[in-house]
Amino acid sequence: MTDVEIDPPSVRRRSRLRQAQMALLLVLAIYLIAAYLLLPALWTHYEHQKGLANLPMVTRTAQGIPGDPMNVGLIGDKRDVVCAMHEAGWFPADPVTLKSSIEIVGSVLLDRPYKDAPVSNLFYLDRREDLAFERPVGSSAD
Results as ranks from 00 to 15, higher is better:
residue 61 T to N: 11
residue 73 G to I: 06
residue 20 A to G: 02
residue 92 P to L: 09
residue 116 D to R: 12
residue 17 L to H: 08
residue 66 P to W: 01
residue 53 A to E: 02
residue 98 L to P: 02
residue 119 V to Y: 14
residue 94 D to C: 05
residue 133 F to I: 13
residue 108 V to S: 09
residue 101 S to I: 04
residue 142 D to A: 09
residue 120 S to V: 09
residue 78 K to V: 04
residue 67 G to E: 01
residue 111 D to F: 03
residue 99 K to R: 01
residue 131 L to V: 05
residue 17 L to N: 08
residue 24 L to G: 13
residue 125 L to E: 07
residue 106 G to W: 11
residue 120 S to I: 10
residue 32 L to R: 08
residue 141 A to W: 05
residue 105 V to M: 04
residue 133 F to Q: 09
residue 75 I to M: 10
residue 24 L to E: 09
residue 58 V to R: 07
residue 123 F to T: 01
residue 127 R to H: 14
residue 81 V to D: 12
residue 105 V to H: 00
residue 124 Y to Q: 04
residue 31 Y to W: 13
residue 133 F to D: 11
residue 126 D to H: 15
residue 101 S to C: 03
residue 92 P to M: 14
residue 132 A to F: 05
residue 37 L to R: 15
residue 62 A to N: 08
residue 39 L to D: 01
residue 71 N to H: 01
residue 107 S to Y: 05
residue 80 D to I: 12
residue 88 A to F: 02
residue 132 A to S: 11
residue 15 S to D: 10
residue 15 S to T: 09
residue 44 T to V: 04
residue 48 H to R: 14
residue 93 A to Q: 07
residue 139 S to L: 05
residue 74 L to R: 03
residue 131 L to P: 07
residue 105 V to W: 14
residue 116 D to S: 15
residue 132 A to R: 15
residue 83 C to L: 00
residue 135 R to K: 15
residue 138 G to H: 11
residue 63 Q to V: 07
residue 82 V to K: 05
residue 109 L to E: 11
residue 134 E to N: 08
residue 114 Y to P: 06
residue 30 I to L: 02
residue 44 T to N: 06
residue 112 R to F: 12
residue 132 A to N: 11
residue 59 T to M: 05
residue 49 Q to A: 08
residue 75 I to N: 07
residue 24 L to W: 08
residue 116 D to N: 15
residue 34 A to E: 05
residue 65 I to W: 10
residue 18 R to Q: 04
residue 100 S to D: 03
residue 3 D to M: 12
residue 77 D to M: 06
residue 47 E to A: 05
residue 125 L to M: 09
residue 78 K to A: 02
residue 59 T to A: 00
residue 89 G to P: 05
residue 14 R to W: 03
residue 4 V to W: 09
residue 12 R to G: 05
residue 121 N to G: 09
residue 89 G to R: 13
residue 118 P to G: 13
residue 95 P to T: 10
residue 95 P to I: 11
residue 39 L to Y: 11
residue 95 P to A: 15
residue 18 R to P: 03
residue 80 D to E: 13
residue 57 M to Y: 09
residue 123 F to S: 10
residue 14 R to S: 10
residue 12 R to I: 11
residue 53 A to Q: 04
residue 52 L to T: 01
residue 79 R to S: 13
residue 111 D to E: 06
residue 75 I to Y: 14
residue 51 G to L: 13
residue 21 Q to G: 12
residue 29 A to K: 07
residue 79 R to H: 00
residue 120 S to N: 12
residue 24 L to Q: 06
residue 95 P to Q: 10
residue 21 Q to A: 10
residue 102 I to S: 13
residue 125 L to S: 10
residue 64 G to A: 10
residue 62 A to F: 03
residue 116 D to E: 14
residue 38 L to E: 11
residue 88 A to R: 00
residue 109 L to W: 01
residue 48 H to M: 12
residue 19 Q to E: 14
residue 37 L to D: 07
residue 104 I to S: 15
residue 131 L to R: 03
residue 72 V to G: 00
residue 59 T to H: 10
residue 92 P to H: 02
residue 29 A to Q: 00
residue 107 S to A: 10
residue 29 A to E: 05
residue 100 S to F: 03
residue 40 P to S: 03
residue 85 M to N: 03
residue 133 F to C: 13
residue 130 D to M: 12
residue 123 F to A: 01
residue 142 D to I: 09
residue 46 Y to C: 00
residue 138 G to K: 14
residue 104 I to Y: 06
residue 61 T to Q: 14
residue 6 I to W: 15
residue 61 T to A: 04
residue 52 L to V: 13
residue 128 R to P: 07
residue 50 K to V: 02
residue 8 P to W: 13
residue 55 L to H: 00
